[in-house]
Write a protein that binds this DNA or RNA. Structure first.
Lengths: 338, 338
DNA sequence: CTGAAAGCGCTTACAG
DNA sequence: CTGAAAGCGCTTACAG
């Protein structure tokens, strides 16, 4: 790799002039600029990221904190972010945030504080007070996407409204015995699953119906399968249990809903004949499964998060509306109860 | 963020000593080292990545070139890479490589040449001669994972063997009329889909069977659905066409196979009753679909690619075996023909 | 419009 | 074992 100095020699100017010609900052005669650019092109010169960063204090890289890269939803958001950052010349530094305490400490105490990024985008993560403190002390633009903590300004879908919408759809079809598969928490700031559960219960209460069962679970397809199995089980400890299966299930994600559909199939139940199922996300498979769902356009969410970061960094990008869109898509997994 | 200098003042030593104490390089009395570390800890000092990189020429970041972050397979590989790099203190710089010519030029001519990474891992990508030249001139360790070009040393699954294994399974069940859904190329180095097609045809030839039809396609679930629709269509341009549907299909990926299964269902065909289907990957959904497939453990592939990069960078990691494992998993999507 | 020089915050060969 | 100083490759305020 050639250096600024070589370009300067070849163009017969100072390194300061080369820097100006290449960055476009500062006044320069057109002739000089052209000469320098030609020299740089001939040498195939590219500015060193580290040297430039050290001198300017800007890295042109954005840190993205992801909980689970291998979940469909986050992979899509990440793709959306990447598609937006690349044209602006920003790189992505990817931080996979696990539950491992040592790894998290390393991430917050060291990695993020090394000054490698100009801004941070955090996806659906929860941070404890210490972690949040670190993020704030970074002094960088911080963009949350579905992050529960109110200290972190966040783009978000109105998840209570999402859940009300899904639940209302089932209620309108005539269902009363509706179960919810998701997650819920009492302490702390309500996270996305908790908001969805609240929306579900609000909708049920609004219709004067006592919610049917709630099964708490993680968010893989496997988990959805297990949770639905739980709902459909009519025995406990070998003893028959006196309870009906619900006529409809609101699952807090499409992947949970897929698992639930597989479990219904395994139990010999027809969807929507015996049981209706609604999800949330707009997963690429939802069409194939005929799953009624509330779409939330994760790719577009990623684009918006990137725009928010770029705008905060002074790039010529309009700051996006923090309220993210969603939309009920009715397919064949929901129908009136028998 | 405090600087080396502040730590030096507080510990009453020179900045050189602080640097040595913190990096562990160079001889130092235990007392001094302890004093410096205490001072650094009190100040919450973290070495600046850019300054350190400029001085040492090492960034402790690895560039990962990904074709499609939002495909299940690549998202899993990426997760595997991340899980391995983090404990060694390496960051990931993520480059989403699209087909957009301008973006690719920008990536290869500028982004990668800015000196932001110590090594490059490339996933299943094809590079033209110019791009390959750039990669080689970077002078960095280069790890390919399923990259077709022989100039790029690559960890790979023996994809011909994978396809032979899948096809042999169908042949052993008694199928003769087997179609393949995938992709194939004549020019250039054979990429993964092409290897699979070759393996398929080799297996068919070995059994003395003329291969049934081949449908070329991209690799989404949607594409699989379309390709299978193609295979099952018995009319063309409104006219009936004289051909039988195959009794079995070998799909070059699980996602294609899922699409094919949905298409079979849409056509009223039973799997495996009317048609057997095999895939490749070991997708998290394959169990639910009962899909017989050749697993290839993408997460572990990512771990190995990361290990290869780390080993090349002199980290204390054993260089992995470049031959990646795979395994036929027989489920309920394959059975003898009627 | 252009250049000389200081500075960004580290690391390391060289001395002692 | 420790320090003074040069150097990594840029950028930019200051002069002219």
């Amino acid at each position: 790799m050639s250096s600024l100095e070589e370009v300067a020699r070849r163009a017969q100017v100072s390194t300061a002039t080369v820097s100006r010609a290449l960055s476009g900052r500062g006044r320069l005669s057109d002739a000089t600029r052209a000469r320098v650019r030609a020299a740089a092109a001939e040498l195939g010169y590219v500015v060193s990221a580290t040297a430039s960063s050290l001198a300017t204090g800007r890295t042109r890289s954005i840190g993205v904190l992801v909980p689970l890269v291998d979940r469909w939803f986050f992979a899509n958001v990440l793709d959306g972010i990447a598609s937006r950052l690349a044209p602006h010349g920003y790189d992505i530094t990817l931080y996979n945030v696990t539950d491992d305490a040592a790894q998290r400490r390393q991430l917050f105490q060291t990695s993020l504080r090394r000054g490698r990024v100009d801004a941070v985008i955090a996806l659906s993560l929860e941070f404890d007070a210490g972690e949040l403190g670190v993020l704030e002390q970074l002094g960088l633009p911080l963009v949350g996407l579905g992050t529960p903590n109110p200290r972190l300004s966040s783009l978000r879908v109105d998840d209570e409204a999402v859940a009300r919408l899904a639940t209302a759809h089932l209620l309108e079809l005539g269902h009363r015995d509706i179960a919810h598969i998701g997650r819920s928490r009492d302490g702390g700031d309500p996270d996305i699953p908790t908001m969805r559960r609240r929306g579900f219960e609000a909708a049920m209460a609004g219709a004067g119906v006592v919610p049917a069962r709630f099964v708490a679970t993680d968010f893989t397809i496997e988990d959805g399968h297990r949770a639905m199995g739980e709902l459909l089980r009519t025995t406990a400890g070998g003893e028959p249990v006196d309870r009906r299966a619900p006529t409809a299930v609101f699952a807090a994600s499409d992947e949970l809903a897929f698992g639930a559909m597989f479990a219904a199939r395994d139990a010999g139940l027809a969807v929507p004949g015996d049981i209706s199922i609604v999800g949330v996300d707009g997963h690429e498979l939802s069409g194939f499964f005929g799953l009624t769902t509330v779409e939330q356009f994760p790719h577009a969410q990623g684009e918006r998060a990137a725009d928010a970061a770029l705008a905060a960094l002074g790039e010529d990008v309009a700051p996006p509306d923090p309220a993210l869109p969603f939309e009920l898509v009715i397919r064949s997994s929901t129908a009136p109860p028998r």
